[in-house]
């Protein structure tokens, strides 16, 4: 999904007239990259989503076929895969569940991440890099390991339950693992840095004399935060939220390891369709539908970024 964002941003940002050749070459490089590793695979997926499934290798009927009897090319476009998504409640249900999980996780990331980003941006400049380092440090451990570690923490005889039992705060162990809560914890924990970093880079650029001016004009520091700092950090909030929300919608490792077994997320459905059912066309249709849905938040991001660029001029 990150590739989608990147590509769309690149297209929109380079739509101005290009005259300098050197600049073209520089811009061409990411384009070639995106062409090879995003557009071509995307077009293949797009194509497959209109095909029929069949038992073969690959398990997809071709779109164009040379029919020797009539001596004609035949184009077989099938919309069945998309119709199938809407006919089966499973897909719509998982789709909305995924969005709910992603939205709630994004909200908590924002709530936890904003104060952290704010504190780092206001810290002594010498210390800031250390704090940022600490934010990034968990990435040095495998993502999978870190999610597995939460199993150990959350399970019935896990660290958290034992701790609470020993303190006699609870009499029976809490059901923490394999719940929505565990998924939220996993996603918030894993994606928090993606919220903090864009927020930090926004907050760090704020002109502190604006807050002094607000203070001077009679605004209590809390009022000044809501009237000055918060509105000026909207683009950071939007960027961070999208960086958490978009991958969280398609997340499949965290819900598989920590989540409920009776409620799938769209990423899990996609994996199942592709690998277990070997139904490539439906899997592709799920991917395309998800992409179309995620275009909306990307557009919002664009809007705010453009506005900020304009304001900076």
């Amino acid at each position: 999904m990150g590739g989608v964002c990147l590509f769309i941003l690149a297209v929109v940002q380079s739509s101005g007239p290009l005259t300098v050749n050197g600049r073209r070459i520089v811009i061409a490089w990411p384009f070639i990259w995106l062409l090879l590793f995003f557009i071509i695979p995307f077009l293949i997926v797009f194509k497959i989503s209109f095909s029929e499934a069949r038992l073969a290798i690959p398990p997809v009927a071709p779109l164009f076929e040379w029919v020797s009897s009539t001596k004609n090319f035949v184009l077989t476009l099938s919309f069945n895969n998309y119709l199938f998504l809407f006919s089966d409640a499973l897909y719509i249900n998982t789709f909305f569940y995924s969005i709910k999980v992603a939205a709630v996780s994004t909200f908590w990331c924002l709530l936890l991440g904003y104060p952290m980003a704010y504190a780092i941006s206001r810290a002594d400049p010498v210390r800031r890099n250390l704090y940022l380092m600490l934010i990034i440090l968990p990435f040095w451990t495998s993502f999978l390991l870190r999610v597995y570690a939460w199993v150990g923490l959350l399970k019935t005889d896990g660290l958290i339950n034992n701790f609470l039992l020993n303190l006699r705060l609870i009499d029976e162990p809490l059901t923490l693992l394999y719940t929505d809560f565990a998924v939220y914890v996993g996603i918030v924990y894993s994606y928090l840095p993606f919220m903090i970093l864009p927020l930090y880079s926004n907050l760090e650029k704020h002109d502190l004399s604006l807050l002094e001016a607000a203070d001077d004009l009679g605004a209590h520091p809390i009022t000044a935060f809501f009237k000055i700092t918060l509105p000026l950090s909207i683009s950071g909030i939007v960027a961070g939220s999208l960086l958490v929300f978009i991958p969280a919608v398609g997340e499949f490792v965290i819900p598989s390891l920590l989540g409920r077994s009776d409620q799938l997320m769209i990423g899990t459905v996609l994996t199942n369709e592709f690998f277990s059912n070997r139904d490539w066309p439906v899997a592709s249709a799920v991917a395309i539908a998800l992409l179309l849905f995620l275009l909306a938040p990307i557009k919002i991001f664009q809007y705010y970024q453009d506005r900020e660029t304009e304001a900076a001029l």
Binding site: S209, L210, E212, A214, D215, G218, A311
Partner: peptide, 20 residues
């Protein structure tokens, strides 16, 4: 007395106008 309670206003060198 904190700034927001003083009967004093200041014009900043950078002007510090609220950009939004």
């Amino acid at each position: 007395t904190p700034p927001f309670k003083r009967p004093v206003n200041m014009m900043f060198q950078s002007y510090a106008l609220f950009p939004h």
